[in-house]
């Protein structure tokens, strides 16, 4: 083995050790399971300024289930949990990108997307979708008559399936928001 190879291997091992120690040095504690970026209850509390309303359940009607199936490309869940107050609803949804479910929080206000965040990312590719430079594209989009997002969300090369999963969750949340009392509140206010 040449001197250069030895140097590279030693450098590689040192790099691994340094990265492994990084979270311990920063937080003073061993690293935890790292795929959870923000837990659901924290996300909900943040979206309602620290005063989250009680959790509610939406049981989609037959018609809504059909529309959700068209958006998701598979049979939707029998019921969806959400939090709602005023004209705002918050949804925690799971969709598979390539192999594993991505858990995202989607906040809808006045039938527009207020915020999208990845809460848990389990995929091997498509890490870009969890960062703000991607999720900020969803802000203020709404669902048009063809049940498409009102604006474009640019793809990320190598992360197409994760991007599509994120779009499906955003569209599903917008659609389900319409079926909640919070959407009716908004409509009543508009009148």
């Amino acid at each position: 083995m040449s001197f250069m190879q030895m140097r590279m291997i030693i450098g590689f091992i040192t790099l691994c050790a340094a990265l492994l120690c990084l979270p311990m040095a920063a937080a003073g504690a061993p690293a935890q399971a790292d795929q959870v970026y923000i837990n659901a209850s924290t996300y909900v509390a943040e979206r309602f300024a620290g005063e989250p309303p009680a959790q509610e359940t939406l049981w989609p009607s037959s018609d809504l289930r059909t529309q959700l199936k068209n958006i998701l490309g598979h049979a939707p869940s029998l019921r969806f949990k959400y939090w709602g107050a005023g004209g705002k609803t918050v949804w925690i949804l799971d969709e598979i990108g390539k192999d594993r479910p991505i858990t995202a929080g989607v906040t809808i206000t006045d039938n527009r997307i207020e915020d999208v965040q990845v809460l848990v990312f389990r995929e091997s590719r498509g890490w870009e979708v969890k960062y703000e430079f991607f999720t900020s594209q969803f802000a203020n989009l709404w669902l048009d008559r063809d049940q498409q997002l009102s604006g474009k969300v640019d793809n990320i090369t190598g992360a197409t399936l994760s991007v599509k999963a994120m779009k499906r969750m955003a569209k599903a949340a917008l659609l389900m928001h319409r079926a909640t009392p919070q959407a009716q509140t908004t409509l009543a206010d508009a009148r």
Binding site: M8, F133, V153, D154, I156, T157
Partner: peptide, 18 residues
């Protein structure tokens, strides 16, 4: 007998660009 080393640096911080 003779190993190889590969390094890559990428940027995808602007949606649509890599």
């Amino acid at each position: 007998e003779d190993l190889a080393f590969t390094g890559r640096l990428s940027f995808s911080g602007v949606p649509g660009l890599q």
